[in-house]
């Protein structure tokens, strides 16, 4: 017990002295593909022990950023340092530090669970007893020990995801990158996974960076970067970001949004954002506003929704766009 404590203190100290060795530092990163800007001057930092989420609708540039960070694609300009290594020149060192979970399964469904993990271990130079014990340790941890000799094609989507993540962790990476890790999972499994990632980041001091278009996933992160058409429009803890939205959020639907919007602005002096077929109002003491607005336009308003701000509201406030896929920018 005492030993553990000591070693923990040492780790913490060495982290403090060599900060850049425990961080991902992205500076002025831009990427253009076929003369189209998919990433536009992005900068952010993530530290070990932290879960960082890149939130954005499909087509916002998340996958491009993910592919650059996972060494699959060079960026057009800007610098990325991963735990002190330059992505442009030290790819091999970086690949040894990375564990990557792709959006599309990277398991061979014709192989068994153990075979998949064994092959993965071999790619990282692990073999023999070390590899065997590491495999059984991870299978145990992810609760798939009893299915280890079955072919992956016989496993459910949720179990396959677990094997996928176990595989990415096999070579004890310091950085775990995940592209839409919860896609295709049911709510319960998704929550379980988010909890597990949180635990992993803290106890193993791993840097976890994930992309998602799901607000729930982003809420579970320590910090979130919001992407919109290649630009990082906000960065911070989920609560911090939500506090930027002024108080409460009210969504109003009517037969004629344009006329109603103008009328509400004139009468109450609040600013209104019109998205899709809704009017969006942010204000303090929202419950009073709801009462007044319904009383003022009883015949025009079809429905009113009142709520505390979510990350979606942050996105809408910052970009003026609805949080949906931008077809013209799909990557």
């Amino acid at each position: 017990m005492a030993d553990t404590k000591v070693s923990h203190t040492i780790t913490t100290d060495s982290r403090l002295s060599t900060v850049s060795n425990s961080r991902i530092e992205v500076e002025n990163l831009s990427h253009a593909y076929q003369r189209r800007q998919t990433l536009d001057n992005i900068s952010f930092d993530v530290s070990c022990g932290e879960i960082f989420g890149l939130l954005g609708p499909n087509g916002s540039g998340k996958t491009t950023l993910f592919r650059i960070l996972s060494t699959l694609m060079p960026a057009t300009s800007g610098t990325v340092r991963i735990l002190g290594h330059d992505l442009a020149t030290e790819v091999k060192a970086i690949r040894n530090l990375l564990g990557v979970v792709f959006q599309h399964p990277a398991l061979d469904v014709k192989l068994t669970v153990v075979e998949n993990l064994r092959h993965h271990g071999h790619l990282y130079g692990l073999a023999g007893r070390t590899l065997r014990s590491r495999i059984s340790e991870l299978l145990e941890c992810f609760g798939v020990s009893d299915r280890s000799t079955e072919r992956v094609e016989r496993l459910s989507g949720g179990l396959q995801r677990r094997v996928e993540i176990a595989k990415a962790l096999l070579h004890s990476p310091r950085v775990l990158l995940l592209d839409e890790p919860t896609s295709g999972l049911d709510v319960a499994t998704r929550r379980q996974l988010n909890n597990y990632l949180g635990m992993l980041a803290q106890t193993e001091d791993i840097l976890v960076l994930l992309t998602t278009h799901l607000l729930d996933d982003a809420e579970a992160c320590n910090r979130v970067g919001i992407l919109d058409v290649g630009k990082l429009v906000a960065i911070g803890a989920p609560n911090e970001l939500k506090n930027q939205v002024g108080g409460d959020v009210i969504l109003i639907e009517s037969r004629d949004n344009e006329t109603l919007g103008t009328a509400i602005t004139e009468r109450f002096g609040v600013s209104i954002v019109s998205t899709d077929n809704q009017l969006r109002v942010e204000c303090k003491r929202g419950h009073e506003f709801v009462r007044n607005v319904v009383a003022a336009f009883p015949d025009v308003i079809q429905s009113v929704r009142f709520g505390k701000p979510t990350l979606q509201d942050v996105f809408v406030k910052l970009t003026g766009n609805p949080f949906v896929e931008r077809k013209d920018r799909k990557n």
């Binding site: 699959l72 990557v100 599309h104 990277a106 993965h120 790619l123 990282y124 990415a168």
Partner: peptide, 14 residues
């Protein structure tokens, strides 16, 4: 290489 096992091979130090 786009949706399968090779993705993981490509990010490995090989």
């Amino acid at each position: 290489r786009r949706e399968g096992f090779l993705q993981a091979v490509l990010v490995a130090p090989v």
